[in-house]
Simulated scan of single mutants.
Amino acid sequence: MQFSVLASGSTGNAIYVESEEYSFLVDAGLSGKQMEALFEQVNRKMNKLTGILVTHEHSDHIKGVGIIARKYKLPIYANEKTWNAMSSHIGEIPLEQRFHFGMETVKTFGNLSIESFGVSHDAAEPMFYIFHEGDKKLVLITDTGYVSDRMKGIISNADSYVFESNHDVQMLRMGRYPWNTKRRILSDVGHVSNEDAAIAMSEVIGNRTKHIYLAHLSQDNNMKELARMSVAQTLESKGIVLNEQVSLKDTDPKMPTILTTI
């Protein structure tokens, strides 16, 4: 199994995951043209995709979903409430390309199993995905106001994580956002801070965990170096040895990560 975080941040999100036989795009929060350019950078073709998995209906996750699905005749997978919420934003999708992926269910494609799980975010029914192939496990979790014990149990001891580390609390509180926006981000249905993300990470990292990609960083209220430093300090305070045990990786709103093999 291989994956690349094609883009991650406030301006658009997309993750590519492939097994030997199947490949999926999780969200497409950039324009079709931008998405094609990102695929070229990781030497992959959109017309080879098995389908698109949607996490929730916010524009930074679905901006390119409709145009990509129509152009390449790709199946789209989402739960019923997300379909209802996003349909008017992604345009007409032929019935044969519309698939239902229920909350906390598993779909199997050959040796690849994809498990959905709910998160806490201000969307219709937001959910993220875990990819299983053999004994390998990749967890994608962003856009959640907190990480519950239920979520921790589901996502524990993965080989790799793409994990939200959205904001630095002090930067957010002192920043230019209006108070109602700050309150939303800080709420249980907003986004997790660097510190809260790191505490959750410390509780789910297992003996097989190798990589954590810090994702969905706020353009205004975080920086890569700050996120990495904050998460590293918390993990090390919990006795987790970085680089020997697990490595922290950056993501970018415009540049894909290299294809990582699990």
Rank of each mutant, 00 (worst) to 15 (best):
I212N: 00
S88R: 10
S187C: 05
D143L: 02
L259G: 04
H61C: 07
G51Q: 04
V162W: 07
L25A: 08
H89S: 14
T257I: 05
P256Y: 09
G29L: 06
L138K: 06
D250S: 14
Q34C: 07
I68L: 15
D159K: 12
E18W: 02
H216C: 09
V231G: 01
M223W: 02
A28D: 11
E92M: 09
L38E: 07
R173K: 15
L112M: 13
M1L: 10
A37S: 14
G12V: 09
S247V: 11
A69W: 04
A123N: 04
E92L: 12
S19E: 01
V147F: 07
E195R: 13
M174C: 10
F39A: 03
A28K: 07
Q2G: 03
T234M: 03
I154D: 05
A215M: 06
G102A: 15
I76P: 01
R184H: 12
E195P: 02
K63N: 03
Y77H: 05
V169H: 12
Y77K: 06
S120H: 14
F3T: 05
N194A: 04
Q245S: 14
Q41G: 00
Y22F: 14
W83P: 05
G145A: 05
S148C: 10
Y16Q: 05
K45F: 09
M255L: 12
N13F: 03
L248F: 00
Q2E: 15
E244H: 12
H56W: 11
S87T: 13
A37N: 13
S19T: 08
R44M: 01
G118C: 10
E203C: 03
K63T: 07
Y177N: 07
H216T: 09
S230K: 12
I52N: 06
E244D: 13
L186Y: 04
H56Y: 10
N157Y: 08
Q41R: 15
I199M: 01
I52C: 07
G239A: 07
G190L: 01
I205L: 15
G9H: 07
S156Q: 15
K249G: 00
K73C: 04
E36M: 10
M201Y: 01
S187D: 05
D250Q: 11
